[in-house]
């Protein structure tokens, strides 16, 4: 309880209420893991890292060690906005690992506009997550959005940095 209060107190983001809602000290009966969770836990897809400073890489780092879940999801995006590759690393329970593994599979080959519409409920449904584990799928959704935001921010910054230089070139040639 103390922890969930602390987590909630430090929360600033929109989905922060999740910690308070999902993490009360209610004794959850030991539930069997769904076979999809076990499969993704035992054979996680796309574990790894891309260079986080690369211009075509977007990184989403969400969660907190004190809450027991940290998810890092990365995407590689081409000029047209297609996600050509994705990977993850997760510190968290089996459901958190499975949620991020599923997320990396689903976003590959889609555009950055498409993937932001992936809902946590879709991931939760695919993995049959029990209510106490729903925050894992929310974290995966947040990680996707954060990764897209990151690559968009990089592009915008690069665009701004590039355009004055281009203007200067034009001015110089004229």
């Amino acid at each position: 309880m103390l922890q969930s209060l602390r987590c909630a107190a430090g929360a600033l983001r929109e989905s922060s209420a999740a910690c308070q809602l999902v993490r009360p000290a209610v004794a959850a009966a030991q539930r069997p893991y769904h076979k999809n969770v076990v499969d993704h836990y035992e054979n996680p897809r796309n574990v790894g890292s891309f260079g986080k400073n690369d211009a075509d890489v977007g990184t989403g780092l969400v969660g907190a060690p004190a809450c027991g879940d940290v998810m890092k999801l990365q995407i590689k995006v081409d000029e047209a906005g297609n996600i050509t590759d994705s990977c993850f690393k997760t510190f968290g329970c089996g459901s958190a690992i499975a949620s991020s593994s599923v997320a990396t599979e689903w976003i590959k080959g889609k555009t950055i506009e498409e993937v932001v519409s992936i809902k946590n409920s879709d991931i939760a449904k695919h993995l049959s997550l029990p209510p106490v584990k729903l925050h894992c799928s929310m974290l995966a959704e947040d990680a996707i959005k954060a990764a897209v935001k990151d690559v968009q921010a990089k592009r915008a910054a690069a665009g701004q940095a590039a355009s004055p230089a281009a203007d200067e070139k034009l001015a110089a040639s004229a």
Partner: peptide, 8 residues
């Protein structure tokens, strides 16, 4: 640990 962003 190989899968952990914290370890990385």
């Amino acid at each position: 640990r190989e899968m952990s962003p914290l370890w990385e």
